[in-house]
Design a protein around this nucleic acid. Structure first.
Lengths: 213, 213, 213, 213
DNA sequence: AATGAATGAGACTTCATTCAT
DNA sequence: GATGAATGAAGTCTCATTCAT
């Protein structure tokens, strides 16, 4: 579905998926280590377990690999996030759980997140748009959870701001790890961040409670 | 002072500073556009207004330019931040003012910030350490303001967390501009972020007020 | 066998040998003309009949070419010298024949010898050691012939000295050609050098004859 | 006198000589270490104790430095050799003394000799001719000593051959030092070489003695 | 489909030489 | 006479991409 933006000379769709997944896995390993620009296509091919010739049977340019990687990363975040969200029973507790899940996920995907921060800009306009849209979707999911789970009204704008804040606080755990992970365990980090997020909604909650009353 | 880590064949220190500033200016322009890796040393020389030979009279390698750029950016942030901080008269209002100043600064330096996010990783161990230390210093300044201006006690850990949050919320305005700057004016963004930051300290403030009483 | 010290990205060993031989041939042509330092890698590639990219598929650095050339030259000398030596029937005549063959060989390889004299010093420690060892081997072969073919005893030291003298008298024909080849035909040169070499062993020979008697 | 082939913008002849001697000294130091091609003009200037600009006041091109160096080396050999030769009282002992002196000189000037072997070829036609002529002169001096000191007649050709042999046996001590200087002390080397040289003239000497009788 | 040898544009960097001060 | 900053041609090497097998 999503990978179809990238042309391949190989017709067998199943094979294309297999090879591209090998490629994504190999590329992420390398990008984590040395970044996109310092990684060569030969290295990607080798790490993926096939030859440079074969690599180019499945992509057209090196940038295609970057796109596949970015796409795969967001795809993974999307899946996991979706699985964590349950809008059937909205509640503040529920909101907290989603945020907690998201933070745990970001801990797992620290290095992938760093790749995104560093390399997305290297994508060409079109593919960049596409990847950024996926990112927006993800923030949108958080935003929806906020709006749905809060007991009181919150402006669209404020909801978006909170969603963005949560979003990057998740990333921050990864890309500022050399500072944060010295001072906090993951659990502490999550607890304090959620604590402050909830605090920042306090007054409104009071008002909301008044409304309820 | 800070540039002295990079060797130059030119002896005249004053001239070195002039040329390096030209170089930093030119490089930032180009890095904003196409990033460090896609910018060639020839382009940097040309944009700086001198020949490739002259460029290499003032640096040893291309990476030196990146270091100079990163160093200059943090230097600028440091100066401006320092100027904005007044610890003589600590008060919550004062804290708000510092945060506001910082956000305005981050608006001005959006693209520089993006460069840092994308390219710092390309620095070699030593220079990276140096640059990251400067970053830590900056967060440290925010942390100190928080501790000093809050009317109540706050744990070292929490102060650090808040400082980090503020720090990256400033960056976020720049590197997520395609989202945020569609929904917020700068003033709105600053207002809402400060609003929520203050809220998140609410309970404590109440306690503090109780103490005062 | 000997070329294996130099890494190649190309796996096919047979092809590596073919290309390297092209390269050695091309490089020797150019080194004769302008020396190692004044010859560019592009020129070597062109003279060898392939592109600069291909050149670097078979070597890592320009110095590798020099090593390959030095190695090939000594390899050739070695083979030819070995073929000329017959230790089954040691005799003074036999010794004279070996020396003669060696001088003829040095005549053929004049320019290669000049290359060695001028450029070996440019090799890095390791490869230089390797090449010099090969040279020692060659002198060792001459030394062995001397010891074996002389009818009388000769000290190890003297044998080594004679071998070294013969060795460089062979070279001298090439690197002092602008003097010697004006005054001597090759045959004359060989005759007179052998004459004097034999004379210098005269007394000993007499002693030897006495012994025999 | 000899340096006058090289143009200088500086008029003061005395100064020119001073500066050029500094230059030659500095350059030899560097050429010993890394050869002509790997030494930069900047390094030569620095080692000589003045600036690159000044260097170019006294020469026109880098090759001029090489010429000055080669010229100076032969000049020195020439002077020393001349001092050692005394044709007033020709005798075999006298010949031996000259050869001995020459070998001692070559021991002192080992590295300079290596420079000559490696770099003369880099000189342009004209200057090369000039330097080679000086070399021929030196061999000529040896030749003359041989002819004069030998008690018997020797053909012009043979005298030249012997002179050339002696000439390069002197060099050999330096450029094959890693072999010879392990096996011989300087004294041993000289003794054995002279021994064999004298032996090679043995028969003739006998004849000569007959004549005398 | 898979391979890997071949290609060459283009990157970084050096360094001999000049010339204004 | 001395200086050293400026220049840019030219060198080495890399690597994305192609294509014959």
């Amino acid at each position: 579905m999503t990978q179809n933006q990238i042309l391949s000379s190989v017709k067998n769709a199943e094979l294309v998926e297999i090879r591209r997944n090998q490629m994504i896995k190999g590329a992420i390993t390398l990008f984590k280590e040395k970044g996109f620009h310092r990684t060569t296509t030969r290295e990607i091919a080798k790490e993926s377990g096939f030859s440079i010739g074969t690599l180019y049977e499945y992509i057209r340019t090196k940038e295609d690999v970057l796109f596949l990687v970015c796409d795969a990363i967001y795809e993974q975040v999307h899946e996991r996030l979706e699985a964590a969200i349950d809008l059937e029973n909205p509640s503040v507790t529920n909101l907290e759980k989603v945020i907690e899940s998201y933070f745990y996920l970001m801990d797992e995907m620290q290095e992938e997140v760093v790749i995104m921060y560093q390399e997305v800009k290297s994508l060409k306009k079109d593919t960049k748009e596409y990847v950024l849209q996926k990112e927006r979707d993800m923030v949108g999911m958080l935003e929806k959870v906020i709006v749905t789970c809060l007991p009181h009204e919150i402006s669209k704008q404020d909801a978006e701001l909170m969603a963005n804040n949560i979003f990057i606080q998740g990333h921050m755990w990864g890309f500022r790890r050399w500072v944060l992970q010295k001072q906090f365990t993951l659990k502490e980090y999550i607890d304090r961040q959620i604590h402050y997020l909830m605090e920042s909604l306090a007054i409104d909650r009071t008002i909301a409670k008044d409304k309820e009353a």
